[in-house]
């Protein structure tokens, strides 16, 4: 199956104009629609929640977007995030660092070696003594196995390479292994962060994404805040947006100080929010407004 090899070189500028025209639906419920990529890859976008989940149904953020935005994600030609994935493939093959290696030198064909990675991270790292996500794994490999500088947050190849790697799992269900190492403790820690009310506005993730999902907050249709589509392509910014950038933006909006990317606090939150999306298909790169 050729799921990762959709032709991506076609520029998607014309469709952006269409997507910019947002039409606010009168009905606030998540759209009753199904996500099939290129007419063949069926995505699980509404699934039964994993045991212990507070919501009756787990729903992908895709359902909360407008028809135009949803359509962009249905077609790999139209999905502007695929350009980022293609750029990521170039980074995958790029030799860097003192050891004269690229990712491909060790991992070969990503379409074989990277399948499932995006569906199972963050995972426990014995070596680091904490959970590791795809971005940190890339940096770890760059330093230890390539003799290259780690990417700074959201810089260099970090977003496209992460998107490229996660895209190899497109369609696979998210499933974390919380049995390994201290994953359970990090899950607990992330859960605390999720329900902690922060900032002058005194809001938690749950206030918006658990108690009020499905409603409009001004022009924004609140989703469940699932993370299965990251890095996502945001039409507003015409760029890939990383998960930790999204976390920081949401926390900032409560008028709080926000934690550093990849801090223990946000790594816990990544473990917990990823778990909440168990069973949803990896959608990277999802398209958002």
């Amino acid at each position: 199956m050729n799921r990762f090899l959709a032709p991506v070189a076609v520029a998607a500028t014309s469709v952006l104009a269409v997507a910019a025209v947002t039409s606010m639906a009168v009905l606030a419920a998540p759209a009753d629609d199904s996500l099939v990529i290129d007419g063949e890859l069926e995505m699980s976008t509404r699934v039964a929640p994993i045991e212990g989940h507070p919501l009756p149904e787990v729903i992908s953020g895709w359902h909360y977007r407008t028809e135009d935005t949803r359509a962009l994600q249905q077609d790999s030609f139209d999905n502007p995030g695929m350009l980022g994935v293609e750029e990521g493939e170039e980074y995958w093959n790029k030799v860097e660092g003192t050891m004269g290696k690229s990712c491909a030198s060790c991992h070969g064909d990503a379409s074989e070696s990277m399948v499932g990675v995006g569906a199972s991270y963050p995972k426990w790292s014995e070596k680091l003594g904490k959970p590791i996500n795809v971005e940190l794994q890339i940096n770890h490999c760059r330093v230890e196995n390539m003799g290259a500088e780690p990417y700074k947050f959201d810089k260099g190849g970090q977003k496209p390479l992460t998107a490229f790697i996660k895209h190899q799992s497109q369609g696979l269900p998210v499933e974390l292994n919380l049995e390994e190492g201290e994953m359970q403790q990090w899950w607990e820690r992330g859960k605390e962060t999720y329900y902690r009310r922060t900032g002058q506005l005194n809001l938690s993730c749950a206030t918006c994404h658990e108690d009020n999902n499905g409603k409009y907050i001004r022009a924004d249709h609140l989703s469940q805040g699932n993370v299965n589509g990251f890095p996502t392509y945001r039409l507003k910014q015409s760029n890939l947006i990383s998960l930790h950038n999204r976390f920081r933006g949401c926390i900032r909006d409560t008028r709080a100080e926000y934690p550093a990317a990849f801090s223990d606090e946000l790594m816990g939150l990544e473990v917990y929010t990823t778990w909440r999306g168990t069973g949803l298909s990896v959608e990277t790169p999802a398209v958002r407004q």
Partner: peptide, 8 residues
């Protein structure tokens, strides 16, 4: 009576 970590 606000939330934690209020912007400085």
């Amino acid at each position: 009576e606000v939330g934690e970590n209020v912007r400085k």
